[in-house]
Every structure is written in structure tokens, then in C-alpha cells.
Amino acid sequence: METLSYSVSTLPLFWLIFLFVYLVAYFGVFRNWSPKNRSEASSCLISLAHGTPACLLAAYAILKIDQSERSFASPNTSFQNMVLEFSIAYFLMDLLHYLIFFPADILFIAHHLATLFVFLTCRYMVFHGAFALLVLLVLAEITSGCQNIWTLASARRADVPAAARLYELLSPPFYAFYSVIRGLAGPAFVYKMGMFYASGAADSVIPRWLTVSWMVVVVMAISVSILWISNLWLELYRERSKKLEKKIT
């Protein structure tokens, strides 16, 4: 079993990397975009820099440990801690983005604060439970690449025909993929996680108040995701219905 690591945190280095990516995006890649789309696109670029790498790193951190260590109460390994720090750095950077450019977007700010609470307490307070959080990270970020490309296409679809075509092409498969992950796989794992913590099996290493807090955050995140994708399906249905009506008339 890999020993616990209390070495110097890699968090500052990861945060500086995400800051660099954001600045390159804002002052370079998207400098000719409108102010609102420019900041949103810069956020998408750091999300791209985080999402797929975080998914792969988390999956590797899960697969490299023995089956006996894959418990919701297992001690964090050094590599698991590093993956948590990678994600913490991203959420801190994106939180700063929202506080500067979209301070009224309470939902996203609350989401980032809640996610940071879970990751920070796991990494720096109890040093246990990373296995469960990394599985959730895989489920959350496996759709990230597609989602960010879809978001960028959506931002420019009104004035760039190619972006509009890409948006229309990506929407159905992205919605379907997201629905399976967030609507089926996510809730199934969260239920299993909740049953484990409710049994008290983790109480000796993770305080009950903390596992309850984690579960509240996770359930709320899953619920918001399901509501979001449901609204997108309804919007797609309305758009397709209008187009069909125009063809008929």
C-alpha cells in the first residue's frame, strides 16, 4: 500500500499553470471576441485544460491501487492527493474568473465553493476518501471535452455559420452522453456512496458531519446537472419542432 504523503503541496504550481492558460486565452486566442464571449471562452479553455487530464489522472489513480484499497474510507495515496490538488487549482482559478466577470452568477459560484469544500477537506483535513471523490471526478469530467467544444460553438453560432453547424451536430450526441453519465451512472454511484457513509463504516476516519456535507454537495450537483440537461433536451425539441413546422408550411 502506498504511504500517505504530507509533502509540499503542488497546488501553487497547478494554479499558476491554469492562470497562464487563462491569460493566453484571454489576451491571445480569443482577443478578437466580444468581451462577454471572450471571458467565457477563456474559462472554457482552462476547463479543457483541466477536464480530460483530470479524468485520465483520476482513472489512473483509481486503477493503480489494489482492489482492497478501493474503499470510500481508504487513506489517500500520494498520487490521489496530487490529482485532488490539480482539480482544486482549476476550481480556484475558475472561481476567480466568475468573481471578476460574472459576480451575479450565484449558481456557478456556489457550485465551485461547494466543490472546493469537498476536495479541500478530503485533501488537507481528513486525508481519507479520495477514492470516492476521484470516481465522481471521472464521471464529472468524462463529458468535459465535448461540453466545452459545444459551449464554444454555442457562443459563436449566431455570427459564425461553421460554429452553428458544429453546435447542431454536437448537441444530440453530447446530450445523450451527458444524460447517461449524469442521469444513470452518477446517481447509481452516489447511492452506493451514500449507503456506505450512512452505515457508519467511515466514521472512524471521516467525521459523520463531513460525510453528510459531502453527500449533500454531491446530490445537489447531480440534481442540478439533471435539471440542466433536461432543459437542453426540451430546448432542442422546441427548436426541431419549429423547423419541422416551417418545412410543413
Rank of each mutant, 00 (worst) to 15 (best):
R123G: 00
H128A: 06
P207H: 04
L19T: 07
H50C: 15
W233S: 00
A110N: 12
E40L: 15
V190F: 02
M1R: 12
F196I: 04
A89R: 00
L244Y: 13
F72N: 06
E239H: 10
V21D: 05
T121M: 14
Q147Y: 06
C146A: 14
V212F: 05
Y175W: 09
L84V: 08
V21H: 06
V126K: 00
V205W: 05
L48G: 02
A114G: 07
F177T: 15
L244P: 05
S47R: 11
V218S: 03
V205P: 02
V83D: 03
T3A: 15
L48C: 09
F196N: 02
R238F: 10
A89Q: 01
A114M: 10
N81H: 12
C55R: 03
A163I: 07
F20E: 09
Y191E: 11
Y22E: 09
L232W: 07
R70A: 07
L57C: 10
F196E: 05
K246H: 14
C122M: 10
L57G: 12
Q147R: 13
G186H: 01
Y22F: 15
A140G: 10
F174M: 10
P172V: 02
V135H: 11
A163S: 15
P53A: 08
M82V: 14
G51E: 05
Q67V: 08
S199Q: 07
S78L: 12
L234E: 08
K247N: 13
L152E: 04
Q147C: 12
H97G: 03
L113T: 14
G145K: 01
N231L: 14
D94Q: 03
A54M: 09
G28D: 03
C44N: 05
E239F: 07
G200F: 11
C122D: 09
P35E: 04
L236H: 08
R156C: 08
F108W: 13
F30P: 01
Q147H: 11
D203A: 15
I88S: 02
A132V: 02
F119D: 04
M82Q: 13
L139D: 01
L166E: 07
L45C: 03
E235M: 08
H128S: 02
G183Q: 06
Y197T: 09
F30A: 01
M1Q: 10
